[in-house]
Design a protein around this nucleic acid. Structure first.
Lengths: 155, 155
DNA sequence: TTAGGTGCAAATCTTTTGCAGAAAG
DNA sequence: CTTTCTGCAAAAGATTTGCACCTAA
């Protein structure tokens, strides 16, 4: 974890930015919640535990900055708030979501399924892909299992 | 076009809703601009030509209603506004976007590339897919061609 | 006549910005 | 010192809501 923070510090410094205590606290929250897709408000509340004096505007500014540096990915699931995800090297470009319409959970899958499609896009549409995003809406394995269990119980 | 409006009228009526003049004007704007991905504000301004007395709130309410009925698809490209797309039967479920990071254009491709992946999701992740969304960010064919031309001109 | 619809204005919610002071090199 | 950063409060934008009136079965 410290190694990853150091790396982000270097990324910031190479562009003339500082890793201030507020930014570090924000990054730590993202690191500690890598599984989730936190909104700015979520991050703000978690950061407040570490640094109670921080302002929401600073969180927004930090997330925006990290987003520009491609340290986090800013995304939008259509619920009116932007969500932010730490972008580990291996996740880069191979990062899809399974969004459960029943319980709201967002799971990630890290397989790289789209490279062949991107090649087709270049050839057939003359479109040079920089990045992509693939989300599936449906019923997650937890809800499927729960339902299977309930109907087995004769419910 | 009238046939499609009739169909939407039936969809509304089957749920107890009416196709009012305002709603019809809104649907017509969507039909006439099927290639685009209009924001609520865009729709509002276009609808005003047909029905100047309409209010923005009505447009929002109409788009929301049509969205619930799956007549339009509400989506979000990360620029802070929701965009709405008429959902033709054939487009249903096979509707991907090519978003140009240079000029901002959003093109659509209608191929069905994901069915095999959805089968894998069901088997490997026990995830039952209802819908999906696939967006590519990159450079569109227009920008690619323009750039090719400019470098050919020795620019 | 009754439920559904509408326009308007006000309210709400997320995100951004201006500014004066604080921190870091 | 000078640039970058911060917190606060205000502003901005998109969307939603309350309400009184309207309209069609």
């Amino acid at each position: 974890m410290e190694a990853r923070i150091d790396k982000i510090k270097q990324q910031l410094q190479s562009q003339g930015y500082k890793l201030t205590p507020q930014r570090e606290a924000t990054v730590r929250v993202l690191l500690e919640n890598e599984e989730d897709h936190l909104s700015a408000e979520d991050v703000f509340m978690l950061v407040k535990d570490k640094a109670p004096e921080i302002g929401l505007a600073t969180v927004y500014r930090t997330l925006e900055l990290l987003s520009e540096l491609h340290v986090v990915e800013k995304m939008n699931f259509g619920d009116g708030v932007a969500r932010y995800d730490l972008r580990s090297d291996s996740a880069y470009h191979h990062h899809h979501h399974l969004i459960c319409v029943k319980c709201g959970a967002v799971d990630e899958i890290m397989e790289d399924w789209l490279t062949p499609l991107e090649e087709r896009l270049a050839v057939e549409y003359n479109f040079k892909v920089h990045d992509h995003r693939l989300d599936f809406q449906g019923i997650c394995h937890r809800c499927n299992e729960k339902e299977a269990k309930e109907s087995a119980d004769g419910k």
